[in-house]
């Protein structure tokens, strides 16, 4: 079990929150979460770990799909948050190659309290605003809606398209839905709030 000793829960958490908020308010805007040496377990992007360290605490629960034992211990020890089944968790940490079953189970909130939904953090290989930065197969995502000035296109590698289909289904009954953060191996984050629509094209 790893206790993150170099993470500053006051100032690192604040800095990273501002970046997450910026990306959430401007879907398609990539921000980089780093600046602190942490050792997250395998199958957890560093940016995903920092999102967890910044937003989790004893008041909320989380669900982990891959390498569950190690990552669960990691978050429990470092945030006092508690694990919960996918259908009840406030945060779901998924992997881009996962099948959509956990995402499908995630709670979408209620009509009177749509804020009781889950945040979903998905680890992917890479996110880019330009099509030419990677040779891996990638999806082209065109976002529109609140926060986006017109349209914004991003390219994501290492993301199962079925996850996006499920996400679109979950977000069909706005204001119910799932708020998603994609993280990549270069510590970048991309947010897809439920208020946004997206079109997927392969490349």
């Amino acid at each position: 079990m790893i206790r993150e000793t170099s993470y500053d829960e006051v100032f690192d958490a604040q800095t990273h929150f501002r970046l997450i908020m910026d990306s959430m308010a401007r879907p398609g805007k990539l921000n980089v979460l780093n600046g602190v040496a942490i050792q997250p377990p395998d199958s957890l992007n560093r940016a995903s770990a920092l999102i967890g360290l910044g937003l989790l605490n004893a008041d909320v629960s989380f669900f982990v799909a891959r390498n569950a034992t190690a990552i669960t211990t990691y978050f429990t020890v470092n945030t006092a948050s508690r694990p919960a089944p996918a259908a009840e968790a406030d945060f779901l940490f998924l992997h881009g190659n996962d099948s959509p079953q956990h995402l499908d189970a995630a709670k979408p909130g209620t009509l009177t309290y749509p804020d009781t939904n889950a945040f979903v953090i998905i680890d992917v290989a890479s996110i880019s605003l330009h099509p030419d930065q990677t040779t891996e197969p990638r999806l082209q995502l065109t976002l529109s809606g609140p926060g986006v000035n017109g349209q914004q296109t991003v390219f994501v590698a290492g993301l199962n398209e079925a996850l996006l289909t499920t996400l679109r289904d979950k977000n069909a009954e706005y204001p119910l839905g799932i708020d998603t953060i994609l993280t990549d191996q270069n510590d970048q984050i991309l947010c897809i709030p439920r208020s946004n629509r997206f079109v997927v094209g392969g490349l």
Binding site: M24, A25, P114, D115, P193, S195
Partner: peptide
């Protein structure tokens, strides 16, 4: 606040 941003 993040939730608030997601449901303007």
């Amino acid at each position: 606040l993040l939730k608030a941003i997601c449901i303007p």
